[in-house]
Write a protein that binds this DNA or RNA. Sequence first.
DNA 1: GTCTATATATAGATAGAC
DNA 2: GTCTATCTATATATAGAC
Lengths: 195, 195
Amino acid sequence: MARAREAVAPAPAPAAALSAAQARVVRAALDLFAEHGVGGTSLQMIADALGVTKAAVYHQFRTKDDIVLAAAEAELARLEDVLGRADAEASPAQARRVLVASIVDLAVEGRRTTSVILNDPVIRQFFAGQERFRRVLGRMTTLLMGGTDAPDARVTTAVFLAAVSGAVMHPLVAALDDDTLRGQLRHMADKLLGP
Amino acid sequence: MARAREAVAPAPAPAAALSAAQARVVRAALDLFAEHGVGGTSLQMIADALGVTKAAVYHQFRTKDDIVLAAAEAELARLEDVLGRADAEASPAQARRVLVASIVDLAVEGRRTTSVILNDPVIRQFFAGQERFRRVLGRMTTLLMGGTDAPDARVTTAVFLAAVSGAVMHPLVAALDDDTLRGQLRHMADKLLGP
DNA sequence: GTCTATATATAGATAGAC
DNA sequence: GTCTATCTATATATAGAC
């Protein structure tokens, strides 16, 4: 799978592979970001969640921004992966279908964190400011919009992305299991993106 | 219009009517919350935006939480208003149609702030913790779900709310004027909620 | 209603021992 | 890799003058 992907895009250049200790920090941070927002999460809170002191966390990351960046990077990497798989499809139409299904899968898989993170104002600014993030999001929207740039294509794509990423963490669906939610969301996507 | 609403629900009990000075604070806070998140917005930032000192802001509100509450309250009041109008309709089906259209209108009208606020983790906790908020949101979802409680109704409703509130502030639609966006979103809502 | 000044806590971040 | 201790800036919040 990774091989098929690399045949298309040269190298994703993951800023730097994370050590096990760094990965633990990022996981804890993601949970806290989802609950309190990035701006409302302190290094002390992250340290407490890990049962260590702030200094121990600073040993893994130089600044808080580096942690936020690593967290955003982790989410982006998953998106890049499915983008690569979609690009490997034979036709643009088929690529779009694969991408839509994969985005639903990603959202359901990370229903507690992914969506909240992506909607956080701080992360938004990170994504807007960094070339690498903009490129990946650009690839995604281009593929989803299917060649056009008309207002209805824009709105449809924005609605699809907002719907999927927002619905998975809505209280109304909290009691639904992953399989049910995934199936329902795929059906919704068909309705929305269909003719 | 307000009269028609009060004929249905006794009184919305707006925690306390805001003075002009308080309203200015809330407006400034809403803008900053939308840009930096509630957790990332300090009283100093709010004071700076108003061109006054922190002490002047504290003269209007006892704590930062009170400002957040007032901001959430302001958004809730708009929702209560359209809920009242919807309830005044003859049939449940007609009430639902009116509510759906009104929610789209609200989202487009406040496209720079409303959605961000409603998706902020801090506001979420406020809404979850306060009886009054839960009651209004409950009225809304009950009306939108149209009598059922099935998984597909839950997902459809969650998708609709997430789609509308999230899409209006998506970069893809930033260049669209309000009228175009509103029209497109109504069309999307029909697709989504239709048979 | 706004200011200056200040109290107190916590934020991000670093130094240096173990 | 983790700790204690500490620095500096900023956070929320208050007191009291104008």
